[in-house]
Nucleic acid binder design. Structure first.
Lengths: 156, 156
DNA sequence: CTTGACATTCCAGTAGATGGAAACTATACA
DNA sequence: TGTATAGTTTCCATCTACTGGAATGTCAAG
């Protein structure tokens, strides 16, 4: 007994596809709903059935998601491919943009981490008797550099 | 003519508060809607009016948001303060958790960046004649390590 | 015949806002 | 007095990428 591996008529249900790809079946239905994947054909019971092509497309989508591409971007890529164009050029542009986004994000997180470290330091130096003073909400956050100007404190 | 700066009866409208703090007025209304700030009193026209205390609270919230605290967390902090407790201890715990989250996130981004760099490299080495081959959606993403097992390709 | 594991649809909710529409108010200017 | 402009109000919708839950249907095994 052997499954005819190359037989494209092999069909599997949503649960198996989802489990194999490590996602929630709801995610797969959701992708269909937003037309990222075509409507899956159904069996007599109304269950969705997936063939190799459907599986591959889904698999591609998830791999792209792992690379943090948005569903919109992925849709673009798939659409290009369907028009017979190789989306690779478009993808490299996306990749370049994503890399630059990531650099920005990392820098932002570094900065944020630094500020939080400062707060952590500060926490060790606040006099116990100050901690319950009622003139602020929380020394730790309050003491951070105040950027906003206060419209109620403007003179003249 | 001088504004009596210390007079806490000075009141400003939402637009001025928002502009001064550098946020959208909608954000301020939103915070009221989710009860992060108390309902602002209104003038005859039904316009919201903000006093010093309201401004300070809002300002605190935004500073905490800048530190990437969730609105839920910020609500907790404010609630503690209202109960007369100094939230500093709670805040340090939050801070510790956030720092650890950030480290995780940065590491994830670094990893992601690395993968995207690989794709970028790959893009330079794909033979022009391969680019339009129809057996894949996009070489660049396709060539990435495939993690999922394919249920349609299982033998035996 | 029932139990359990699947599947279906539909509705709602998540976080943190933001956009837009329709209506009202306030102020300045001619 | 009229009107133009700007600010405000409420309400509803939208964004991202799903996920949870309810009510119902299907299927195979024991």
């Amino acid at each position: 007994m052997r499954k005819t591996t190359d037989d494209i008529t092999d069909l599997v249900q949503i649960g198996q596809v989802a489990q194999t790809l490590g996602v929630n079946p709801k995610t797969v239905r959701y992708y269909e709903e937003i037309k990222l994947i075509p409507e899956a054909p159904r069996n007599n019971a109304g269950y969705r059935l997936y063939d190799q092509a459907a599986f591959d497309r889904l698999s591609f989508i998830l791999r792209a998601r792992n690379l943090d591409f948005s569903l919109d971007d992925i849709g673009e890529i798939l659409a290009l491919r369907e028009d017979g164009e190789a989306p690779c050029l478009y993808v490299t542009e996306l990749v370049d943009r994503r890399i630059s986004d990531i650099d920005t994000r990392i820098e932002g997180l570094r900065q944020l981490r630094h500020e939080l470290e400062d707060i952590r330091e500060e926490a060790r130096s606040i006099p116990r008797e100050d901690i319950l003073l009622n003139d602020c909400i929380c020394h730790l956050i309050e003491n951070e550099a105040l950027v906003a100007r206060d419209p109620l404190k403007e003179k003249d």
